[in-house]
Design a protein around this nucleic acid. Structure first.
Lengths: 186, 186
DNA sequence: GTGAACATGTAACAAGTTACATGATTGA
DNA sequence: TCAATCATGTAACTTGTTACATGTTCAC
């Protein structure tokens, strides 16, 4: 999915500036399954205004630069609907963490342990953040998405906790090799 | 993580051709948390051979073009280890499906139902595929990764199944609007 | 007085994908 | 005979990120 559809989707929930869209994406529940930068949002918004998918009203502010508040148009809404038509592409789940775990045996045991612990902690934070989203947004679609996120993160935490002993201990002989490699890397 | 590290990582499990690396990524357990195309793998392999991270031995074949079998070198292994040093970036989970669900109320009810059903089916296939990986790879890191994948996919399926009624029924008044939008979209 | 938050925007750059080019074999 | 599998490779193209540019206010 492209930035255009993303912007259209957020604007469907209400008017917003480019700045606000970015914030919603990185702080709201969007956060966990989408991302976008200013460098892509602003140009997208400008082009969409040219295409009449959104309208822009400028709001002067004291001290701060003018706000450009965007609203989705009827044309924008139908564009959004047709972009959402058809089968959505399968989810993409990219994980450097898992890649590291896959190659755990060539890495120092303490590094693995640290990364592992950190991951659990990160997931707990993500979970808390997601649960706070659940209270705010009473919108049905939002509720569903947040529920999905919670279910998955809880499963991940659960798995990591019950596998912790296995992955951390299961490596007696490898530590020397890892040491050699780490030294050679410098 | 870049293609280089990915290739180095797969070569760490044994020699392979560019073609085989691609297959492993799209069929093996790598599949679910990484992706790469020929257009990125082949150039990466060539450059890494120049940098002495891998060696290449050409194997003539009848009827088929020559195979280029790559092996990771000691230098490659240390490069891999140092690339895996440091905290891995947080997992990225991108989901068009969830985005569609978020905006379910502006889309035709039957479309949502179809997409929803398809998603459950796809996840079941993914789960089966992942479970078959579990038998093949007896490697500890692989076992862990596959276990993680299974845990998450099962959680997703579970959530989708128990929420099915809610998301599909909870939309009586919206259908008309959706119809209008769908028409306008054409 | 220093950094964060507010607010927009552009240009250079990175990274990878898609499509193309080539060509034999094998199974339906 | 038509598609798929095996096998490699390049060039054009997409898409988006990073870094920069600009400027105020508020809190510490």
């Amino acid at each position: 999915m492209n930035v255009r559809t993303l912007c259209l989707g957020t604007l469907n929930f209400g008017d917003a500036t480019g700045y606000e869209i970015k914030k919603m994406v990185e702080e709201g529940m969007f956060n966990h399954f989408i991302e976008a930068s200013y460098g892509s949002i602003y140009p997208a918004l400008t082009r969409m205004a040219d295409d009449d998918l959104v309208t822009c009203r400028e709001e002067a502010q004291e001290g701060k630069p003018d706000k450009k508040v965007y609203s989705i148009t009827a044309k924008g809404r139908s564009e959004l609907a047709s972009a959402l038509q058809g089968t959505p592409k399968p989810d993409k789940f990219k994980s450097e963490f898992l890649f590291v775990m896959l190659l755990a045996d060539i890495l120092p045991a303490d590094h693995i342990a640290a990364v592992y612990g950190q991951r659990i902690e990160d997931l707990r934070i993500e979970l808390a953040q997601m649960k706070s989203c659940a209270d705010t947004g009473s919108h049905p679609g939002g509720q569903f998405v947040v529920g999905y996120g919670i279910a998955i993160i809880e499963a991940a935490i659960g798995y990591l906790e019950e596998s912790r002993i296995g992955i951390t201990t299961d490596r007696t002989t490898e530590t020397e090799t890892a040491g050699t490699v780490a030294t050679a890397a410098e």
